[in-house]
């Protein structure tokens, strides 16, 4: 099976869906002539032309809102946010208009839009560019939120997202763009809302998603080798809809759980997970639910310190050892 990067996997998903459905349009800042600020859309303009691959001004509220309006008439816009951090200037369009229009119209109007782009810290770009808004987004009924960790998942999930009739927010990671993984050449899709057990284990379940999956897998190897601890890693892949059954089955098997997330701790995705786990698996737990998150401050610039502010394999190992103590 060929190895391709996470970036290429997303590009292939876009190209395949652009080919499959003439209503799909890719739109965003620098997606066309510049070939993508992070080169995700590299070459798409040459293949699909300027009607399908559209450069926008730096005008997120304008172009995201335009995409929402176009989607109401049957266009399937795939909008790139150069950083998900820029969602704040389009908040009204994303979370008032896209999220609510179906409901407020009594189900008469659909909004099949995808908004995608990177949402992560760890690149020393300071607090304004390092937001991870999956909890904020998922707080809005009507939307779907996807955070893929691998090339394989990114491709299969993005294809499902583009075919979905509800608004889907797809959160990528600039640090993962260069990571290679096995991706089949034959077409496949991965349904939204299906978690994936990335590593089977017996002693403790790590529930995680996004780049923290990679950290957790690295930590799990060390924990197995140096400490004899067998860690199961559950990758949620999609935040909403949420495959809680897979989480529950794993927790019931290992009886210990650590949530790892690149979120600020207060009212994070992990907070919701912890509530659900205690509610539905209280008697299966051998100890309190643990959680490792980003250290609670705006993203620090200082490069070596930012690494420590975020979850990383070393912090995951410590958190697992604390949970097992």
């Amino acid at each position: 099976m060929p190895q391709i990067t996470y970036r290429e996997a997303i590009r292939h998903a876009l190209a395949e869906e652009l080919t499959r459905d003439p209503n799909v349009v890719v739109m965003g800042e620098e997606v066309a002539q510049f070939n993508g600020a992070y080169k995700v859309t590299d070459g798409l303009l040459a293949t699909f032309g300027p009607t399908r691959i559209v450069d926008t001004p730096i005008s997120e509220a304008g172009f995201i809102g335009l995409g929402v309006g176009a989607s109401m008439l049957g266009i399937r816009p795939v909008m790139e946010l150069m950083f998900w951090s820029f969602y704040s200037v389009a908040f009204d369009q994303i979370l008032n208009n896209a999220a609510n229009v179906r409901y407020m119209s009594g189900g008469q109007i659909n909004c099949p839009i995808v908004i995608r782009g990177p949402a992560n810290g760890g690149t020393n770009v300071g607090a304004t560019h390092s937001h991870t808004p999956e909890n904020v987004l998922a707080n809005h009924p009507g939307v779907k939120v996807v955070v893929p960790a691998t090339a394989y998942d990114a491709k299969g999930l993005l294809k499902s997202a583009i075919r979905d009739n509800d608004p889907v927010f797809f959160l990528e990671n600039t640090i993962l763009y260069g990571d290679k993984g096995e991706v089949p050449e034959a077409e496949y899709v991965i349904p939204l809302g299906k978690a994936d057990i990335k590593r089977v284990g017996a002693d403790l379940t790590i529930v995680t998603y996004g780049r923290c999956v990679i950290h957790s897998l690295k930590a799990a190897e060390v924990l197995e080798k140096d400490h004899g601890i067998s860690v199961e890693v559950v990758d949620l892949r999609t935040i909403r809809p949420l495959d809680f059954d897979t989480v529950l089955a794993s927790v019931k098997k290992t009886n210990r759980v650590l949530i790892v997330e690149e979120q600020k701790p207060f009212a994070s995705v992990g907070t919701q997970l912890a509530y659900m786990i205690q509610r539905e698996a209280f008697d299966d737990l051998d100890g309190p639910i643990h959680r490792l998150a980003t250290i609670d401050a705006p993203a620090i610039y200082s490069p070596p310190v930012e690494t420590e502010q975020l979850p990383n394999p070393g912090r995951v190992i410590k958190a697992v050892l604390a949970a097992m103590a």
């Binding site: 499902s160 349904p191 939204l192 299906k194 809809p241 949420l242 809680f244």
Partner: peptide, 8 residues
Amino acid sequence: KSEGRLFF
């Protein structure tokens, strides 16, 4: 086509 919980 999706799976999992949509409502909480």
